[in-house]
Amino acid sequence: MTSTSSSLKPIIEARDVDKHFGAFHALKKVNATFYEGQVTAIIGPSGSGKSTFLRTLNRLETHDTGSIKVDGIELNDDLKNLDAIRREVGMVFQSFNLFSHLSILRNVALAPMRVRKMSKEAAEAKALALLERVGLKNQAEKYPVQLSGGQQQRVAIARALAMDPKVLLFDEPTSALDPEMVNEVLAVMRELAHTGITMLVVTHEMGFAREVADRLIFFDHGTILEDSSPGEFFSNPKHDRAKAFLTQVRHGF
């Protein structure tokens, strides 16, 4: 968790990223550069464009104008570029999105086999190692429906890690969980944060943001309103909207 200064190699560069849904202006010229190894927490009110921004970074949403580069590769309609970028960027969703017809082991092993053309044996060995890392090796033969929400999200993290991504995007990874399961997922993410992988985490867990993130971005109405360190943001938010948001969060919603 050494801070931004240790290595300043940019891994994601978003320039003037603009996005509409019909007439609705979801992202308004968003600019941000993310550096290798950095853990960024993205917070902000619901509907402010956090998910949309994250999803443009691996092109689950296309952006209208502006440019996004991942590890120097331009994200555009070129499918070669898209393939290359999706290999480097993993994603963890709020609703886990595990493949319900596949065993836990197959969920994790599938992408290395299909995308990296790994042998079944190698992919499954790797999947088992990753499951062990998230504490679920003994669940490998089960199916997603047999696991708790917290366990499913840990599998989803292992699944994303199986592609050896340089960047992991988390879209509210604990928001769909019962409170008693939030910590087991945060623990895995905390451990990951120390491994040097780049993480962008949209979250409502202010404790996690404050403790684990190197950087904090506050989104509002499709723009980045504040971009600072968690310490600075929590003790001294600059914009009224950010202050109001923090007040609201502190009173627990």
């Binding site: 689950l60 960027v89 999105n97 595990l98 992408a111 299909r114 699944r159």
Partner: peptide
């Protein structure tokens, strides 16, 4: 699930 597969690079 389709999005998850696409995000994994399938």
């Amino acid at each position: 699930q389709v999005e998850a597969a696409r995000a994994l690079g399938l």
